[in-house]
Design a protein around this nucleic acid. Structure first.
Lengths: 233, 233
DNA sequence: AGCGTATGGATTGCTCAACAATCCGGCAAG
DNA sequence: CTTGCCGGATTGTTGAGCAATCCATACGCT
């Protein structure tokens, strides 16, 4: 290995030495609380309370909150405060419009020749889901499901797309938290285990067109199911 | 019209009364300077200098800069400052991966039945480009070109996708500013006037499949052209 | 010259304290 | 039952300040 190539491989390490900023850590902490469901959609996040419990300045709290607002995890009502987002039916439809556009396209056209590792990640997500189901760990199944879809857009091989999908999935978790009792999360995710499996196998077999078609149908029924659940609310 | 329905139609006005925050205005101002090319890629943005020239506290400047970093318009190097982003070839490839996935998909599958206004916006962008070209207003042509692509993803009818496309196009302007002399911007955008026109006509004629195919080819050659220009740098 | 080290200045990351503007709830008056 | 007003609380924004970090320069050594 030449010196230059060795140095090039070290370029990534820059991200590791530069440890994360305080505001970023605060944002991560709050985002976790939200997506884990420990903060209810609609709940308020007062700046001073956060600042005190996290032992940071109110300014850095504001910086973190602003970031989460940009991620659509929180919403800011001017002069009133920031709240956990409450995704309505319009949001669900919009999110699924994006997913229906991106995910099948990634499956169909993604350059997985360049990234064979992306395929194993799909397979891994399926396994993760099966194992969680065997353990009756339904939040685990939900998590695996997200990993599955994340792996699917990973087939496109685009850093920007991956990041964007992360935001969409975070929003989806908010959606789920609006419908949940813990019984609902099982009822919702369990039926998709088989579908994930089927899509993964079609992909491994190289039939991307069929996989994409399956996925489109999959997403469409999921959207209908969620909107139906919303209607009873 | 009942009182209730009248009030309901006023709900949208909420966005207008709530005027934008200072940090937001600062962010808009800086973003403009950047995408208009008055700040060179790689240029540094010291916090105090900005704060003084804009007559605003350093804290609000920081808030604005953080937002622009999230938009990838700026990059932050910890403890060193924020700089105008310098998109490299890897960024160009990534951006075009996203565009090649999203734009043709929007053309193919967008629910324009629901949004016929979206189609006229495509047509308008084409006209805007022709008029700018007649005026020999090449930055105007470039702007119209962006409006064209924005209108294309508008066919998908998704607010989130529109927003995301806005960020991508802002990044594209940074890319152009790396290659430019003002002669380059003409040479690059002028040939695409006809292609835009052709795609728009295919769309109006209802042949979305052909439009999508044209668009895919269009984007692929544009990417090659840009990367070639980068190579000579 | 080449290399490591120290030193000083500049800038960022973060904190703290304060104040005006705004919003909310309640209460009193019409 | 509405309108108007008051008081408390929270946000939006400012200003100052300090530790940590980075950069350039100078210094010393080989």
């Amino acid at each position: 290995m030449t010196v230059d190539s060795a140095l090039a491989s070290l370029a990534d390490a820059r991200a590791l030495v530069a440890r994360t900023s305080t505001a970023e850590r605060v944002a991560d902490a709050v985002r976790n609380e939200v997506v884990e469901g420990r903060l209810r959609p609609g709940g308020r996040l007062p700046e001073v309370a956060l600042a005190e419990t996290l032992r940071v300045s109110r300014n850095t709290v504001r910086e973190a909150l602003s970031q989460l607002v940009a991620e659509r995890v929180l919403v800011r009502e001017p002069n009133r405060g920031v709240f956990v987002a409450v995704p309505g039916p319009a949001d669900v439809r919009d999110v699924y419009r994006v997913r229906l556009l991106i995910e099948p396209a990634a499956v169909r056209d993604g350059e997985l020749a360049a990234e064979p590792s992306a395929l194993v990640r799909v397979r891994d997500a399926v396994l993760e889901g099966r194992e969680a189901a065997a353990r009756e760990d339904w939040p685990g199944v939900a998590g695996a499901n997200q990993h599955f879809h994340r792996a699917l857009v990973g087939l496109a091989g685009s850093e920007r797309l991956d990041q964007q999908m992360g935001l969409l999935l975070a929003e989806m978790r908010l959606v789920f938290h609006r419908m949940t009792g813990p019984t609902a999360v099982r009822a919702f995710h369990e039926p998709y285990l088989d579908r994930n499996d089927r899509i993964a196998e079609l992909l491994m077999a190289g039939d991307r067109e069929a996989a994409a078609t399956q996925l489109t149908e999959y997403l469409a029924t999921a959207e209908r199911q969620i909107l139906a659940a919303y209607a009873t609310l």
